[in-house]
């Protein structure tokens, strides 16, 4: 079994690098560590639910936070990583 297969089998780690959250007069950094497969719909749904729920409390991802995530992700291209 090669390493790629092992990773796929284990599924797992997705790190959502620290998102910068902004609320009126406040900017905070949230780090998210999750264990779901890279291409798994569950992980994607969870991210969407979280972002929406935080927005419900007035916390929005700042415009540049997503690009921070993208930049951090690029060096690792294997499937165990997402957002």
């Amino acid at each position: 079994m090669n390493r790629r297969e092992v990773l796929a089998l284990l599924g797992v780690t997705a790190a959502l690098p620290a998102s910068v959250l902004a609320q009126t007069n406040a900017t905070r950094r949230l780090g998210v560590l999750s264990v779901t497969a890279a291409d798994d719909a569950i992980g994607q749904t969870r991210s969407a639910v979280l972002v929406q729920a935080l927005a419900g409390h007035g916390w929005k991802e700042r415009d540049n936070s997503r690009s921070i995530g993208q930049r951090r992700r690029r060096p690792r291209t294997d499937r165990a990583i997402r957002r």
Partner: peptide
């Protein structure tokens, strides 16, 4: 076993997250 390699990966991400000095962490799982 396989779980070890997996855990090493989660550990690596944890290191990176902590280095970013977040105000708060969400841990899923």
């Amino acid at each position: 076993g396989n779980g070890g390699g997996d855990r090493a990966r989660i550990a690596q991400f944890a290191d990176e997250l902590i280095a970013l000095k977040p105000d708060i962490l969400l841990a899923v799982g």
